[in-house]
């Protein structure tokens, strides 16, 4: 679909170029898209009346190509692939705590850079807990963890309205195990890119 639209655009541009060249009474090249009409006019005789203004760009004029993100590999990925490879790594918390450790801050500084580079991304910060608290209290504790991560990102210059928080308490453990290693992985703030 994308390819077809690009092709249509190219054909349209070619046809417009042909039309513009005809007005300036020059013999246009026929085998490849012509340079823009204005350039053709400048290069021609001064006495020739200026060609009509170029037509307004067609709707699919590929303006966005010029604004492609610096890392084309990330920019071309869909949201699912992007989240699967997780450019915004989760940060982890101590038991019953929502304080950011030094490691978590370092991690979030990297995430803040990624978010500044990809300034259009919208992100949901999920707060999660391990299974050892109650389901009820953990919902609020997960919220505090999500808010801690968000607040730090905002302090690093990420716009607050790009970061939404939601707590899942202990409902969605990352590791279904029941030991210290699993619990440590489950006490986390997890980042999901929801729009780019």
């Amino acid at each position: 679909m994308q390819r077809m639209r690009t092709w249509t655009t190219m054909v349209a541009v070619t046809m417009m170029a042909v039309a513009g060249a005809s007005c300036s009474k020059k013999t246009p090249p026929v085998v490849r898209p012509a340079p823009p009409p204005a350039a053709t006019a400048d290069a021609g005789m001064g006495s020739t009346p200026a060609p009509p203004a170029p037509p307004p760009p067609v709707r699919d004029e590929p303006v966005s190509v010029a604004l492609a993100p610096p890392d084309p590999a990330i920019g071309s990925k869909n949201l699912d692939d992007l989240n699967r490879e997780s450019p915004l790594a989760p940060v982890f918390f101590a038991l019953d705590s929502y304080e950011l450790s030094a490691d978590a801050r370092t991690q979030l500084q990297g995430s803040a850079q990624v978010l500044k580079t990809n300034a259009t991304w919208q992100v949901t910060v999920e707060g999660h807990c391990d299974e050892r608290g109650t389901a009820e209290y953990n919902l609020s504790l997960g919220e505090r963890r999500a808010l801690s991560a968000k607040a730090y990102l905002v302090s690093l210059g990420v716009a607050a309205d790009r970061l939404r928080t939601v707590s899942y308490g202990k409902e969605f453990p990352f590791d279904p195990g029941h030991d210290d290693a699993a619990w440590a992985k489950n006490r986390r703030a997890h980042f999901v890119i929801t729009a780019k």
Binding site: L79, N83, R84, S86, E171, F172, P173, F174, V192
Partner: peptide
Amino acid sequence: TATIEQRNVK
């Protein structure tokens, strides 16, 4: 629907 983890609904 989730991106990474298996998430059982309730």
